[in-house]
Simulated scan of single mutants.
Amino acid sequence: MSFQAYLDNAERQTGITPRAFLGLAAEKSLTKHGDVVAWLKTEHGLGHGHATAIARLVTKGPEFVAAHHTDGVLHLDGVAARS
């Protein structure tokens, strides 16, 4: 599964876009990978793989993720924004 697919599936499960998750994590001052994963699992019901993908996005930033885990394109505004 591609990194983008993990983000898209997490959005489908929660109704929260990747960009919104970035904002929510910032509001909670979550910066450590393990803390982000735990929050996503307990408060949003995500499984480990999906929580880990979003945690990487939160802790490393969109630019890093786009450069290292995609073909340079990362969609953060949700699946509907691409339709």
Results as ranks from 00 to 15, higher is better:
27 E>W: 06
81 A>H: 14
26 A>H: 14
68 H>P: 01
23 G>S: 13
45 G>I: 01
37 V>R: 10
3 F>H: 04
54 I>M: 07
47 G>Q: 11
78 G>Y: 11
62 P>I: 06
14 T>L: 12
34 G>V: 07
46 L>S: 03
79 V>K: 12
53 A>C: 03
52 T>S: 15
1 M>A: 13
7 L>R: 01
1 M>V: 06
16 I>Y: 05
39 W>I: 00
60 K>L: 12
42 T>Q: 13
8 D>Q: 10
51 A>R: 07
65 V>T: 12
61 G>K: 04
43 E>N: 10
18 P>H: 14
60 K>D: 13
55 A>C: 03
42 T>L: 05
69 H>T: 04
27 E>V: 03
14 T>V: 11
40 L>S: 00
61 G>R: 04
7 L>E: 05
74 L>V: 09
45 G>Y: 05
44 H>P: 00
61 G>I: 05
25 A>Q: 07
44 H>A: 01
22 L>C: 08
38 A>L: 09
13 Q>Y: 13
60 K>E: 15
66 A>I: 13
66 A>F: 09
57 L>D: 08
50 H>A: 10
45 G>C: 02
49 G>L: 11
8 D>G: 01
76 L>G: 03
25 A>Y: 03
31 T>K: 14
24 L>T: 00
58 V>N: 01
24 L>P: 00
15 G>V: 09
30 L>Q: 06
30 L>V: 03
54 I>D: 02
1 M>I: 07
35 D>T: 09
27 E>A: 14
38 A>Y: 02
79 V>P: 04
53 A>V: 01
80 A>C: 10
21 F>L: 11
73 V>W: 15
17 T>L: 02
60 K>G: 05
33 H>K: 15
79 V>Y: 13
42 T>C: 01
55 A>R: 08
83 S>A: 14
31 T>W: 08
54 I>N: 01
72 G>K: 13
44 H>E: 00
77 D>S: 05
64 F>V: 07
49 G>K: 15
11 E>F: 04
35 D>N: 12
49 G>S: 11
75 H>I: 08
2 S>M: 08
69 H>P: 00
3 F>K: 09
42 T>G: 00
1 M>G: 11
30 L>R: 07
28 K>I: 02
60 K>I: 00
57 L>Y: 06
81 A>E: 15
61 G>V: 05
71 D>M: 08
7 L>D: 08
27 E>H: 10
43 E>A: 11
83 S>H: 15
65 V>Q: 08
41 K>C: 01
35 D>P: 00
67 A>M: 14
20 A>N: 10
7 L>A: 07
8 D>T: 10
20 A>P: 00
58 V>T: 02
19 R>N: 14
2 S>R: 13
79 V>S: 09
49 G>C: 03
62 P>A: 15
20 A>R: 15
61 G>F: 04
73 V>S: 14
71 D>I: 03
63 E>W: 02
48 H>I: 05
27 E>I: 05
65 V>S: 05
53 A>R: 04
36 V>N: 06
13 Q>F: 11
31 T>E: 15
